[in-house]
Design a protein around this nucleic acid. Structure first.
Length: 580
RNA sequence: GCGCCUGUAGCUCAGCUGGAUAGAGCAACGGACUUCUAAUCCGUAGGUCAGGGGUUCGAAUCCCUUCAGGCGCGCCA
């Protein structure tokens, strides 16, 4: 995790990184540090008035036995500044660097525009494979807003790693096996009236599911019935299998429609049922390692006093969650040879993954190190936890429906002439919902609030999309195809433009940071900052109709911002319409 | 009881690999559209960074502790 700031540079240096390295090269010998250490110590001052980069001298004080301000002054006098630095100032214990506005503009715009949509990509992961397991819903249940975090986090994380050159395998580990399917069969046989489920299958299955759990309260024997049907299913009973297949087919079809709408796809829809015939071998493998024991009739792996044991087989012989996950781990290792297997699964399952990891460790498998659990908080209702079985949930379809119709209203009001209104409403409405789920640190619980999801002002997806639209609109109206950077860049040397340029230069680092911390919100926040910087520029500076050099340089900046916004939105899984 | 996570402005949150006066958005109030899309921008107001202790030249950030909330802890997934 450490060192991303100066490691990425090995092949293609990022621009903010370039500036840091140029300064570090000259400064390193004076302070007797490695250049990498100096580069890492360089920070961005809280206020641009203080400079563009700063070197704090406090750590040098004990060794040099001098006060930090004196050290800074001394360094300022002895330092031979690189060409990009226009000015060095000493403030307190800080050595502050002001980049040459012209050099900053030129280097950043060249880097961004030349790389095009590849700006920010890296080769950190060349030759390495990552398997990412995300979304993984329980089928035969509707897609609720509670499934959004894993779905959009996983999508974004896999795109971030792809940008870093990794080969990413996206797996949807469908919850398509287990006692719940016994329950579905019982409910369908009792109350399903042999419905072929051709219309509104998910709604019907959902009502059956809720009814089962209501009836189960009054009639606890239903639970045993469900277990029995699941046993029959595992044993290959044709009737059980036929019903299971029906539920599976209609559910998957429905889920795929939702994923299409969200713009998300998977390389494999290999759910738990896929591993049924691989479980015995997995179980044997664990047993052969000699770490299992039988406790109360169940097969377990004891994990010491601090952790509860990992249950592999119930006393009736049936398999469990952990058993199937182990089978999946072995299969994935053999099939994809990944350096990492990432599980984007809610925080409440931390113990499960901790146990899996420990089991692998006890088996002496390096696979233990590859296993990464990326947890996130719960989506809750103001009343408390959501519960599918009690019917306390919000359907994603309802939210998408509300969001897109709200966008449609706004378009009718603000831009009634807009071409392709339907598509834009879809892209913006869904963008709002996705961004809402990626805006904040993933560990926080989300209280579902219609007002927040349907707000399109301020820190929202539509705000970012709107900013992109503004850029595209300017470029369209300028009507210029070729944008060779002029010699004279004085149109973008003022403070607001420079702020935008500095922000653009950070994009590559942001990709790495977001990927390594499995935290797309880092990208979300960055894009909000970029959009805000740009909108400030847009409101301050005229672009079209200025003298040619000014217009051209500003257009280049607009083009670069549009490009980074589009790319950043894509990494989050949002579309960037050209008009809205 | 034990373990994991969270606690920053009225609300939702950034900032947390220690650094300069703690930042946004929403809500409130006041401004900016005959000029590139006002889904925008500018300003005003709003803070014991949950409380206490410690480490440090320096702590919202690291350590300890207390409190509050969420989640989990053997045959569900």
């Amino acid at each position: 995790m450490s060192g991303f700031c100066y490691f990425i540079g090995k092949r293609r240096r990022t621009t903010m990184q370039m500036f840091k390295e140029q300064i570090a090269q000259r400064l390193a010998p004076l302070v007797d540090w490695e250049p990498e250490r100096v580069a890492a110590a360089l920070e961005i001052p809280p206020d641009a008035k203080l400079g563009d980069l700063a070197f704090p001298c406090f750590q040098l004080a004990p060794k040099l036995r001098k006060a930090p301000p004196a050290i800074a002054t001394d360094l300022a006098n002895r330092l031979e500044v690189p060409a990009v630095v226009a000015k060095v100032e000493v403030v307190g214990g800080y050595l502050n660097f002001f980049l040459h506005p012209h050099a900053l503009a030129q280097q950043v715009l060249e880097a961004v525009l030349e790389a095009g949509d590849g700006y920010g990509n890296a080769q950190l992961g060349a030759g390495k494979t990552i398997v990412i397991d995300f979304s993984s819903p329980n089928i035969a249940k509707p897609f609720g807003v509670g499934h959004m975090p894993t779905t959009v986090l996983g999508n974004s994380i896999s795109k971030l790693y792809k940008a870093l050159g990794y080969n990413v395998v996206r797996v949807n580990h469908l919850g398509d096996w287990g006692t719940q399917f016994g329950a579905m069969i019982v409910a369908y046989l009792r109350w399903g009236e042999n419905d072929p489920l051709t219309e509104d299958p998910i709604g019907k299955l959902y009502r059956l599911y809720v009814k089962f759990h209501q009836e189960e309260e009054k009639e606890p024997s239903l639970r045993d019935e469900a277990r029995a049907w699941f046993s029959r299913l595992e044993a290959g009973d044709p009737e059980a299998r036929k019903l299971w297949q029906l539920f599976y087919d209609v559910s998957l079809k429905n889920f795929k429609r939702t994923y299409d709408r969200l713009g998300i796809d998977f390389d494999y829809y290999t759910g738990e049922s896929f591993y049924v015939d691989k479980i015995d071998a997995a179980l044997e493998r664990v047993k052969a390692a000699g770490i299992t024991e039988v406790s109360d009739g169940a097969l377990v792996v004891p994990l010491g006093d601090d952790l509860p044991p990992c249950l592999l087989q119930k006393s009736d012989g049936a398999t469990l969650y952990a058993t199937r996950d182990l089978a999946a781990l072995f299969y994935r290792e053999e099939t994809f040879k990944p350096e990492r297997i990432i599980y984007v699964v809610a925080l409440d399952q931390s113990l499960h993954f901790k146990q899996l990891k420990l089991v692998l460790e006890k088996m002496g498998l390096p696979l233990a190190d590859a296993l990464v659990h990326v947890p996130f908080g719960l989506v809750k209702l103001p009343e408390g936890k959501m519960s599918t079985r009690r019917g306390q949930m919000v359907l994603l379809d309802d939210v998408l429906q509300e969001a897109t119709s709200r966008v449609r209203e706004i378009i009718a009001e603000k831009n009634p002439e807009l071409p392709q209104r339907e598509q834009v409403a879809e892209e913006v409405g869904i963008g709002a919902v996705i961004f809402h789920n990626l805006k904040n640190s993933r560990m926080r619980d989300i209280i579902f609030d219609w007002n927040e999801v349907l707000n399109f002002d301020g820190e929202t997806g539509p705000y970012l999309q709107y900013t992109h639209v503004r850029c595209m609109s300017v470029l369209r109206k300028a009507g210029r195809q070729e944008l060779a950077l002029p010699q004279d860049l004085s149109g973008i040397t003022d403070e607001v433009a420079q702020q935008v340029l500095k922000r653009l230069s950070q994009f590559p680092e942001i990709i790495v940071k977001a990927a390594e911390s499995y935290e797309p919100s880092t990208m979300s926040r960055y894009l909000l900052d970029l959009a805000q910087d740009f909108n400030r520029f847009y409101n301050t500076c005229r672009i079209i109709g200025e003298v040619e050099a000014v217009e051209t340089s500003r257009l280049a900046l607009v083009k670069a911002v549009a490009q980074v916004l589009r790319r950043g939105l894509d990494l989050l899984g949002l579309k960037a319409p050209e008009q809205m």
